[in-house]
């Protein structure tokens, strides 16, 4: 078991190195443009560009450039933006992180509860009109672009029905910190949570239903039913337990990816200044140091989360330990 965990950690370190090298190569080793000018941003003075070239070592070999960049990002953490002159980028990312976490945590709760409800209900009413209706709804959820759903909900809750009792409670767009008032924080995030969760309720609900239906063919389910257990007990204690295993793997991956930037579209539509929106604005300004910081920190978060989920697996499930 210890060996398996160490192996997974080594793999994690390798992927971390790979991603940082890949990002570095994409930004600074693509032919056709000057990396120093790229960092300096649009319409930079020639002296600035030259200073950057010296400071970042762009006149030295690639591995040295890579080492300098990593040092600035992770060791001294003093990489500054040149578009927003002198702004240190790493603290910006740290400040945005809680907002993204608030968004993704809430959505995750919603989507786990929602998809288990959808999956179990559909599997129990298999091939009836309820099952079919739920699966069609789930498929629609999967087919909607998340930013469009967000705009649709904005249109309904901020404009068209904002004056009715249905949505008069919805505060204006933007993030309100938790410690300034948990209730307001909750109200601003309810609709973004739902927006982000809709897609995943669809995906997970469908997967869970398929798994449950498959599990129902297993011998031990027949045994449980033959023993005279009630259908709900068979479902929850026997079938659901088994079907949740792939569910957990998927959840680990998706949660990491969302915190690592996939929540970007939701953040942009609802004006939440999380890591995703930070990346988006840096992208519009061509603020390369900022993008570098958000991309690196976000992908590192994803990799570490995935590794943690896998290690948790090794601890929980004895079958994984063998290989």
């Amino acid at each position: 078991m210890v060996f398996a965990i160490l192996q997974r950690l080594a793999q994690m370190l390798f992927v971390l190195f790979g991603i940082s090298a890949l990002v570095f190569l994409i930004f600074f080793a693509t032919p056709g443009s000057d990396p120093a000018a790229r960092i300096a941003g649009r319409n930079a003075a020639q002296e600035t560009v030259e200073a950057i070239r010296k400071d970042f070592g762009f006149d030295r070999p690639l591995p040295v450039q890579y080492a300098i960049m990593m040092e600035k990002l992770f060791v001294s953490r003093d990489l500054t933006s040149f578009v927003n002159r002198g702004l240190e980028v790493v603290p910006q990312v740290m400040r945005a992180a809680p907002i993204t976490l608030s968004l993704v945590f809430g959505a995750a709760v919603l989507w786990v509860v929602g998809s288990i409800a959808v999956g179990v209900l559909a599997a129990m009413t298999r091939d009836t009109i309820i099952d079919k209706g739920l699966m069609i709804l789930a498929l629609i959820g999967v087919s909607m672009p998340v930013f469009w759903l967000g705009e649709l909900l904005n249109l309904v809750s901020q404009s068209r029905f904002h004056d009715t009792f249905l949505f008069s409670w919805v505060p204006g767009l933007g993030y309100k910190p938790f410690f300034d008032g948990p209730w307001l924080w909750f109200k601003t995030l309810v609709i973004p949570w739902f927006t982000l969760a809709a897609l995943y309720i669809g995906i997970y609900g469908r997967v869970l239903r398929a798994n449950l239906v498959e599990t129902y063919q297993e011998d031990y389910i027949r045994t449980a039913r033959a023993k005279g257990l009630s259908p709900s007990r068979v479902m929850i204690r026997h079938a659901l337990r088994m079907s949740l295993i792939p569910f957990v793997t998927m959840f680990g991956m998706d949660f990491g990816v969302l915190v690592g930037g996939a929540a970007l579209l939701t953040e942009v539509v609802f004006g939440l200044n999380g890591v995703g929106r930070l990346t988006y604005q840096a992208m519009l300004n061509l603020d390369l140091p900022m993008i570098l910081a958000t991309v690196m920190y976000a992908s590192f978060f994803v990799v570490v989360t995935n590794a943690l989920v896998d290690i948790l697996y090794v601890v929980i499930d004895p079958r994984v330990r063998g290989n």
Partner: peptide
């Protein structure tokens, strides 16, 4: 497999943003 592993762990939208920034600002 190692290359795929790295790409797999890279959040797709961040990868797309990184690629587009470079490709959209350079002529090929």
């Amino acid at each position: 497999s190692r290359i795929l592993e790295v790409l797999w762990a890279f959040p797709v939208y961040l990868l797309a943003i990184s690629l587009s920034i470079v490709l959209l600002t350079t002529e090929f």
